[in-house]
Structures are given as C-alpha cells and as structure tokens.
Nucleic acid binder design. Structure first.
Lengths: 305, 305
DNA sequence: CCGGAGGTTGAAAATATCTTTCAGATGTGA
DNA sequence: TCACATCTGAAAGATATTTTCAACCTCCGG
C-alpha cells in the first residue's frame, strides 16, 4: 500500500526546486509518524536543517538516520545528501528575499552594511546611466583626435582634477604626451601654446566652472581640438568644445554629494576614451604599457608567498 | 608560511555568502597552481561543481582530493562539504537572475560602442564584487577609528595616489584633518609625528608597494591606528595594518590594466569609509558640507539656461 | 484473549564520502 | 649543483550516508 505511494512519488517527481514546503504538505498524509517529524523539521527550518548531518537531523527530530534517509527519498531525492543540497539552495533563496531596500537614500542611521550595499548599487546605476547616455559618435571623434594629437592638455579642478590626473597618467603610460593642469593660471598660460593638431580636454561636472572653461576657451581659439566632459552639455563649457561627452547626474543626498557619483561617471568616460585611444595606437601602446609594468615591478617588495 | 595565510583567511572570513567569485579572484594569486585549477572550476560553474563529490571535482580538475579540500579551506570553509553547500546556494541564486552576455574581453578591434558597454559592465561587476567581499566589521572599525582621529594620514602612489587624494578631499570637507601624502619620503617623515589616536591609511592594490608600506609601518610603530586598503590582504602591507579593507581584483586584459578596475574598487571602499565617517560625525559634518558647497558656488559662472 | 501478517522503526553493518598524513615531486635560491 | 622549502597526490584514517535486518508495534481474525 504505502510502498505504491513511495514509488509513485519518488519516480514521478524531479528533485524539487523550491516547492519543498508544498510537497511536504502534499505527501504528509502518506508518511509514517516519524517521517512526518522529519518532514516538518525540514519544511519549518530549511536553513537550519541544511547545516545538519543525517545523524544531527535524526537526533533533532528524535528519530533515526534511516528514517531521515527514507523521508528524503519520499520527497524525491536520491538520498539525504541531495536533500541537504536542495535545502542549502532554498536557504540562499530566502536569504536574498530580505535584502535591504537598496534603492532608498542613504540615511544617517543606516548600518554600515546597508551603506555599502546602497553605495555600490548607486554607483552601478550611475555607470549604467552613463554608458547608456554616452554619445558614441562624439566619443569616437574624441578618440580619433586624441590618438593623433601632438599633445593633450587636460583641465579640471576639485574632484574633477583627480579624474584629469587619472587620464593623464594613463595616456602617458601608452606613450602619449598628456598633461593634467591643476593650477588654473598655469593652465591658461599653457593653453596659449596649443595649436591645431593639439587636444584640450575640460572636465567639469557642473559645466560652468570658470577655472576650467577659461583654458578651454583659449585652446579653442588657438585652433586646438577641444573636448568637454561634463554633466551639463548645455552649460557654458560646451560653447568652446568641438566634442561634448556627457556624464550622468545621479541623484544626490545630503550624505552623498553629487561629486561622488559624477566622479564615477567621469571615470568611466575617461576610461572609454583611454581604451579607444589605446586601440587606435595599439602598435605603440602595447609595448609602452608592458614597459611601464616592467618599471613598476622594481618598486615592489617581494610578496610573502 | 602558507599556513599563516590559511589562518588569516579561515578565521577572518565567514563562510562567504554569494561573494564566491570575487573571493576566488582575490585569493587566486596566493594560491598554488593546482588550487587555482580547482578555484577556477568552482567559480566558473558553481552549479555543476555542487553536483560533484570531492573525488569527482578532483578528477574534473585533474588534481587530487587533498587539493580540493585545501582549496575549500582557503576559501574560508571548514571543508569541502561546506563549500559544496555554499555552491548549491549560489547555484540557486544564479538560477533567478540570468547574466547578460557582455562578459567577453575587450578586443583591439571592438567598435567603440562595445568598448563602452563592456567597460561599464566590467566596472559594475567590480563594484558588486567589492561590495560583496568587503568585511563590514573591519570597515566599521576603520570608520570608528577615523571618526575620532586627531589627524588622518593617507599614503598612496601611482593610481592609488589619486584615490588617496579623493578621500582626503572629502574628509577635509567634513571638517576632519586629513592629508594625502604623495611623496614617499615626506610621508615617512610625517608618519613619525603620528601617535595613538591618529589614523594612517595605506592604499595599494598589490599590497606590496614599498613606498606605501614604509610610512604605514612607521605609523604602526608609533601607535597610530593603521588601515590598509588593498587587493592582496595576504600581502606584506597587512602586517602593519590594524584593519584591512579588501578591494576586489577583476580580471584584467592587455588593454584594460588592473589599475583600472582596482581604482573603481578602491574608490567604492573609500566612499564607504567616508560615508561611514560622515554618519558618525553628522553633527559637524552636515554644516561643514553645506559650507563647502556655498564656497564652491562662487567659483561657478552663471549657467546659460 | 491470543497469534500472526503487514508495516514501522532504529541499531548496527556496509558503503560512500570526506579529511589527514606522509613521502615523493617540484621548484628555488645560494 | 645542492640544500631547502613548498607543492602534490596516494593512501590511510575519520565521518557521514545508506543499507540491512531484526525487534517492535498495530490491527485483525480466530
């Protein structure tokens, strides 16, 4: 009698995905008393049971190992081992269910783990937005200009200054002549030197940072190819830019200033620009990169392992 | 020697939830060849590996059971059995959210639009990995130390230098005394001034940049609270760090140097640190932030529209 | 009330799986 | 090249899982 039921279920039903609790309820009537104990424990606390061995679960339910195995079989698994694996999967699923609402703003009293999650989420969002909003035609043109430039001058102040330095560092590494100007006055002084065939890049989130616009204007007037990386393509900086690369503007909160997400966005744009240039100048870029690695290796103390 | 590493990791890291792929990448460099084979298999096909026994996985990777167990240990599990359970959980996770197909490496002849998409995807991945792999306990401790520090010194060279400057800029904005040292010699000279109650932060992807380790060591010896932000928590820099914050190590390619993704990762960590500190010092941080916005507004030319 | 057939149960044996040990293999620096 | 340290896998040892089997219920029918 009961053996029929066993066969029907154990053969008919696949290893069962997440519908475990339901299955237990369906099969419960056809189970013997001690098997029901096991099934209940499993349905009630999958995560907890996943941590137990056969013996452990047998003790916890006041039954024997044999019964546990029998129950696992009835539930459609080849043995307890597989039931346990399924249980672990189930537990992981439940885990993900109660993630903190990462879309919410970062609050003053958020636990540190939430801060990490929210921040990571926000920055991922910023990246996606930036990638989606980036004009590849403009980017292509900027890449083309930079690849063949005699020299590349980069302007940025404040947080954008770091982005500019980052770009300059990388371009230098692949053998291009790039310089990030930090002092606005010197930037203007140097911009005067530019001429056709040179490239000037201005980085400003607000699109209206005078200290950055001014050198770009001078470069523009001197005939250099000018590029603006800004979150406000309608800002004054675009007036003097041959190519405008738009960064995204994520929402900001009191604790999370705009500078933070704009930096993420700017860096992505700058990276794209860099890789584009590296592709175009691959012949010279590759060995130059290799050489700079080589040089760096000597600055490192030997590893522990 | 290797046993030290084992201990650091197996004790420090909890069974790890979904950050397995990230963890594998972080730890891969400190693994032996055959262990890397196992780690790769596990990271590459969690679901498939979850279905295998030790012996099965050993055969599949062409190694021995012993190696499989060793790898499981290194990844932070008590043994293979537990790794397998975690794998089952991971597989269940993946089941729900199917990954997009931009996982390919950036090639020399990729059109610019692909570069943008791949780069954005990679950086998003890096962020997710970093967030998943970040030890919130260590982060919390670092935040606590920084919040009450008399002064905060930050060391970084090369690309990491920019990250350090970014952090310093932000901390300064909320009224803390922070300084990013760029010159290694000056950094050491200044580190001597530190004492208990001060905080020193070293940023190095490789974990073995002498120019950065040296000032941290001095700070450590002087009794300051030391923090390391590194992609190699088993590297020499950790010796002198009270708290180690691990950045993730994304795969790199010829065109996409490690510096690029490590920077993304480092910035996320730094942002988390900053926001944590801002939360803790909200009373003073909020007005300080507001004031710095105010000051910046005057540096902007009026918008066109 | 008794005996036994059919079913249930757990102790213990048998097997599979996982872990540890150890000696040989391999690499590395002097 | 040798000495040293590390890495590796075969096999022994320990655990966990599965199977076996006999005791034990439970429910009938005599």
């Amino acid at each position: 009698m009961t053996s029929d039921v066993k066969e029907i279920f154990s053969s008919g039903s696949p290893p069962a995905p997440a519908a475990l609790a339901a299955k237990v309820r369906t099969l419960a009537p056809s189970m013997t008393r001690s098997m029901q104990l096991v099934a209940e424990a499993v349905a009630g606390d999958p995560a907890g049971c996943a941590a137990l061995t056969v013996t452990g679960l047998a003790e916890r339910t006041g039954t024997s190992e044999a019964t546990v195995v029998r129950t696992a079989r009835l539930l459609g698994y080849p043995g307890y081992r597989d039931l346990r694996l399924a249980l672990a999967g189930l537990a992981a699923h439940q885990e993900s269910g109660r993630a903190p609402a990462v879309t919410a703003d970062i609050a003053v009293d958020d636990p540190i783990a939430d801060v990490v999650a929210k921040l990571a989420y926000d920055e991922q969002q910023t990246l996606a937005d930036t990638a989606a909003g980036l004009d590849t035609v403009q980017l292509g043109a900027a890449v083309a200009a930079a690849s063949t430039a005699r020299r590349i001058d980069i302007y940025g102040v404040g947080a954008s200054s770091l982005v500019g330095q980052d770009l300059a560092q990388k371009l230098l590494r692949i053998g291009l002549i790039a310089h990030a100007h930090m002092d606005p006055h010197l930037a203007v002084t140097n911009a005067v030197q530019l001429r056709s065939g040179d490239v000037a890049i201005a980085i400003t989130h607000s699109g209206c940072t005078g200290d950055v616009i001014e050198p770009l204007r001078v470069a523009f007037d001197r005939g250099a190819t000018t590029i603006a990386i800004t979150g406000r393509p309608d800002g004054p900086v675009s007036q003097y830019a041959d190519h405008v690369l738009t960064t995204s503007t994520a929402r900001e909160s009191e604790l999370r200033p705009a500078a933070m997400s704009s930096r993420t966005s700017q860096l992505l744009v700058v990276d794209c620009l860099f890789i584009g240039v590296a592709q175009r100048t691959y012949e010279t870029a590759a060995p130059a990169l290799a050489a700079s690695y080589e040089a760096l290796a000597h600055r490192h103390t030997p590893r522990t392992r």
